[in-house]
């Protein structure tokens, strides 16, 4: 059963169309990766799904319910979460406050959940009172993930979570992604690091110029020389 269904979505900014009739699906419990060159529209797609950019046409369905253009505040209540590419932490708030913001819509005591997140990411637990802006790149990404996990999302959208991280950190992050998935979180991720994405995901879409150019499982995609040359050569 597909958890997320994107059907013929057209979207963009101002009068500039970025996504041209794009369709994809994410199944329950899958890790789906979107690869492709810069400017392809991958981030725009995540933003469109998450209600940051309203779709011009087409529909987006989550667990059977139409969420096209629904604002983020509602999606968060429905079990979706989104980790943007840059600007994904509140630099002037403390680490703990960042996590608190992640559970903003909850009125009850969120401290148990905060502690759970800290157990997941012990490195940032030590720095809970520090300003998030002072953290290193790796820890910021962990905090960004932590914030998104505060509400136990069922579907997680991640935009280039590995950007700017050293290789061993990238491995660590993707380990976590796998762990989350094992616990039942469905993940749709955008990546520039093609090898890592192919390694981790169950299915892959290649997006370029706002259009779907290819899809399939990682082995098939990697084996296709044409695709590999065109889209995976640079990473």
């Amino acid at each position: 059963m597909s958890v997320l269904q994107v059907d013929n979505v057209v979207s963009g900014y101002g009068s500039m169309e970025v996504l041209h009739d794009l369709s994809l699906a994410v199944g329950q419990g899958e890790i789906v990766a979107m690869l492709g060159p810069n400017g392809a529209g991958k981030t725009t797609l995540l933003r469109t799904i998450f209600g940051v950019v309203p779709p011009w046409s087409g529909t987006i369905t989550y667990k059977g319910e139409d969420i096209s253009g629904v604002p983020p505040e509602r999606l968060v209540r429905m079990g979706l979460a989104y980790i943007p590419q840059e600007y994904n932490i509140f630099a002037s708030l403390t680490v703990q406050e960042n996590l608190e913001m992640g559970a903003f819509i909850r009125d009850d005591d969120i401290h148990p959940r905060i502690e759970e997140i800290f157990e997941l990411f012990p490195d940032i637990a030590e720095r809970r009172k520090s300003r998030a802006g002072e953290l290193s790149g790796g820890m910021r990404q962990m905090l960004a993930i932590g914030r998104a996990l505060m509400l136990n999302p069922e579907l997680l959208l991640m935009d280039e979570i590995s950007t700017g991280l050293a290789p061993f950190l990238v491995d660590a992050i993707f380990e976590r992604v796998k762990e989350l998935n094992d616990q039942g979180v469905t993940i749709l991720l955008v990546e520039q690091n093609a090898p890592k994405a192919l390694q981790t995901s169950d299915r892959v879409y290649i997006i370029e110029g706002g259009e779907k150019k290819a899809e399939g499982n990682p082995e098939a995609i990697a084996a296709d020389e044409e695709i590999a040359r065109l889209y995976l050569g640079r990473s």
Binding site: F50, V52, P71, P72, E73, V76, R77, Y82, P84, Y87, N88, I89, F90, A91, S92, L93, E97, E100, M101, G102, F104, I105, R147, L151
Partner: peptide
């Protein structure tokens, strides 16, 4: 207060605040 922290969050990054579910 929660409101105060959300004000600071909005001042820090309005978009991220909305993404986190803040109205």
């Amino acid at each position: 207060t929660k409101l105060g922290k959300s004000i600071r969050a909005i001042a820090d990054d309005l978009l991220l605040a909305e993404i986190s579910g803040i109205n």
